[in-house]
Amino acid sequence: MKLVVLVKHVPDEIVDRPSSAAVFAADMTVDRAQLTGRLSEADEYAVEQAMRIARRRLDVQITAVTMGPPEAIRTLTRALALGADEGVHIVDEALHGSDAQATSRVLAAALARCGFDLVICGVASTDSGMSVVPAMVAERLGVPSVCEADGVWADPGWADGDVIVARREDGDHVEDFAVPMPAVVSVTDRVGEPRYPAFQAIVEARQKTVRTWSLANLRIPADEVGLAASASPVRRVAPHAARRPALLVDGEPDAAAARLARHLTEHQLI
Score class of each variant (00 low, 15 high):
107 L>E: 00
34 Q>S: 14
14 I>T: 14
231 A>C: 13
251 G>Q: 03
204 E>S: 13
133 V>N: 05
177 F>D: 11
182 P>S: 00
123 V>G: 10
262 R>D: 14
240 H>K: 15
79 A>W: 02
141 L>S: 01
81 A>I: 04
52 R>K: 11
18 P>E: 00
52 R>D: 03
204 E>Q: 14
89 H>C: 03
118 L>G: 01
38 R>K: 10
15 V>K: 06
125 S>F: 04
123 V>K: 14
252 E>V: 09
255 A>Q: 13
99 D>A: 04
96 H>W: 10
170 D>Y: 06
165 V>F: 04
108 A>T: 05
129 G>A: 07
188 T>N: 02
198 A>M: 15
42 A>H: 11
68 G>C: 00
132 V>H: 09
151 G>F: 12
5 V>Q: 06
30 V>P: 05
131 S>P: 07
201 A>L: 10
221 P>D: 03
87 G>Y: 02
156 P>I: 08
7 V>G: 01
34 Q>G: 09
51 M>H: 07
29 T>D: 07
85 D>G: 08
120 I>D: 02
209 T>F: 12
72 A>N: 03
113 R>P: 02
244 R>D: 13
77 T>E: 15
216 A>Q: 12
80 L>C: 06
93 E>D: 15
78 R>T: 11
3 L>S: 06
264 L>A: 10
9 H>A: 08
170 D>P: 03
166 A>N: 03
78 R>M: 10
158 W>A: 15
71 E>I: 13
121 C>I: 06
70 P>V: 02
124 A>E: 14
161 G>M: 07
19 S>I: 11
63 T>Q: 05
174 V>Y: 06
194 P>K: 04
108 A>M: 00
93 E>S: 14
60 V>H: 00
262 R>E: 13
233 P>Y: 04
156 P>L: 09
216 A>E: 13
30 V>E: 05
19 S>H: 12
89 H>Y: 07
35 L>G: 05
29 T>K: 08
6 L>Q: 10
73 I>T: 12
208 K>N: 01
252 E>Q: 12
183 A>C: 05
194 P>D: 04
11 P>K: 01
248 L>S: 13
45 Y>W: 09
132 V>D: 09
213 W>K: 00
155 D>L: 13
223 D>M: 02
189 D>I: 07
109 A>G: 04
180 P>C: 10
198 A>E: 14
127 D>V: 07
123 V>Q: 15
166 A>F: 02
219 R>S: 15
97 G>Y: 01
260 L>Q: 02
240 H>L: 15
173 H>K: 13
31 D>A: 06
78 R>I: 05
215 L>C: 04
158 W>Q: 15
235 R>Q: 14
12 D>Q: 03
164 I>L: 12
124 A>V: 13
265 T>G: 10
23 V>A: 05
179 V>A: 00
41 E>K: 07
19 S>E: 13
90 I>N: 01
249 V>H: 00
53 I>C: 04
91 V>R: 12
125 S>Q: 07
189 D>H: 12
157 G>R: 15
114 C>G: 06
171 G>L: 06
232 S>H: 12
55 R>W: 10
24 F>K: 06
270 I>N: 12
216 A>W: 08
248 L>Y: 12
242 A>I: 11
100 A>L: 08
67 M>W: 03
224 E>L: 09
97 G>P: 04
139 E>M: 11
193 E>N: 11
109 A>Y: 00
121 C>N: 02
207 Q>K: 15
80 L>Y: 01
195 R>T: 13
174 V>G: 08
12 D>E: 03
